[in-house]
């Protein structure tokens, strides 16, 4: 089924487009909107966005496949991104990742069967002062302990 933007997102797009010098420059923000609406960027979405901006689909595919924040397949709603970079590793980030994996019963790159979470192990989120840390949805959490992870996941399930 062809993808279409909701009326409210279409309105947002109509506001975004004239602010950029070229249509293509609006690609990243429009893909962010599309992902917010659809959950991930399916080939349908890529085609719809390409035709909206007058771009070849391959120009959109190049972008969706280059950037890590764009999801290319169906996935859990809330992303959990556990930092795996140096400061977090030094302060127990690996144990935290292992604990989150066990707790959710899924591996890195997978989503929970109830569709609530998806789990990623990511490079530096630039919050090393709160190491070991992770991002759940929009928010940063740290320094993490197993107890804090329990609490955060419980809140996230609500």
């Amino acid at each position: 089924m062809a993808f279409t933007f909701t009326p409210s997102n279409q309105k947002k797009i109509n506001e975004i487009l004239p602010r950029y010098e070229t249509k293509q420059a609006a690609l990243l923000p429009i893909l962010h909107l599309a992902q917010e609406q659809h959950g991930y960027l399916s080939p349908d979405v890529e085609e719809a966005v390409a035709s909206l901006l007058g771009l070849p689909v391959v120009k959109v595919r190049e972008v969706t496949s280059f950037y890590t924040l764009y999801e290319k397949k169906p996935c859990g709603k809330t992303p959990i991104r556990v930092c795996r970079n140096l400061s977090c590793t030094l302060l127990g980030g690996r144990e935290i990742l292992e604990y989150v994996r066990q707790k959710l019963g899924i591996d890195v790159g997978e989503s929970t069967p109830d569709g609530r979470f998806r789990l990623d192990s990511v490079e530096c989120l630039c919050a090393c002062e709160m190491a070991p840390m992770m991002q759940v949805g929009d928010d940063y959490y740290g320094p993490l302990t197993k107890e804090k992870v329990d609490q955060i996941l419980k809140e996230g399930r609500k």
């Binding site: 970079n85 140096l86 400061s87 490079e123 530096c124 630039c126 919050a127 090393c128 002062e129």
Partner: peptide, 8 residues
């Protein structure tokens, strides 16, 4: 686009 590990 802050991203250099160790910088915040």
């Amino acid at each position: 686009d802050e991203g250099e590990p160790g910088t915040f």
